[in-house]
Amino acid sequence: MSKNEQPNQMELSERELARLTADLDEAHREAYPKMRESALDLGSQLNQTFGRRGFLASAGALIAGGAVLAGAGPAAAAGRRMLSPAAASPVPTDVLVAGLAASLENLAVATYGSALSAAKAGKLGKVPAAIATFAVTAQAQHADHAAAWNSAISAAGYKKITVANPTIAKSVSAAFAKVTNVTGVAELALSLEEAAAATYLEAIGAVTSSQAVEVAATIQPVEMQHAAILNFVLGRYPVPVSFATLAAAAPISDTKGLVFAKA
């Protein structure tokens, strides 16, 4: 193929790729109402069972004590497992999990936003078009995930969690400050995606509300897909393991600093 033909090939490629992704918005419109329905179902269930000790017991009395209720002090750290036996909290476990999830999604949205701003300001060097598209799309999907979790939190009678996870944000901010190129951003994004996927995986095995499992189960594979593409971009094998692991899961103690206030 001659040099003169190269641009045409890229145009064709772009056109074909655009055709193959043309259903993105439509798929989004189809998928989102279903997830909102699940999230509202979850919230409704939590609202109905709020205050029932039986609900917490059925969730395995898993509260690690890391949540900060409005006006209450932080409890002891619970180690790095997400869900471990500890004193009961007045906040239902599934609300805590939803809050943790929402805060992780908010952090991802903010981090991709910071990356895009840095790219626009020329702080990351030349940013390939595919990387920019990835960041914009992943950011939008994380915003959708956060909205789904917050729908459940609202329906359960609590105020939305609109902040980035304060515990993890500290380390992410420190890492982002050292980023000087696209590779660095991709590495950071990969760690966030892996943490989110592992957290959802652990949540699926821990919460008993089928609606909570449903929400987590429809999001976890998407975070895994983000991770696969990031691994690929970084030149690594995109599907490195046969089984997703819990190693990067955020513990429930990472709800420390989040305010679970009744609406």
């Binding site: 890229m10 992704t21 998928a31 598209t133 914009v136 995930h145 429809t218 998407v222």
Partner: peptide, 20 residues
């Protein structure tokens, strides 16, 4: 990566929630 079309950045994950 630099040569990939922009759309390649999103083609792998078309849905924000995995459809069933």
């Amino acid at each position: 990566v630099a040569a990939l079309p922009a759309a390649a950045g999103k083609v792998g994950f078309p849905n924000p929630f995995f459809p069933t």
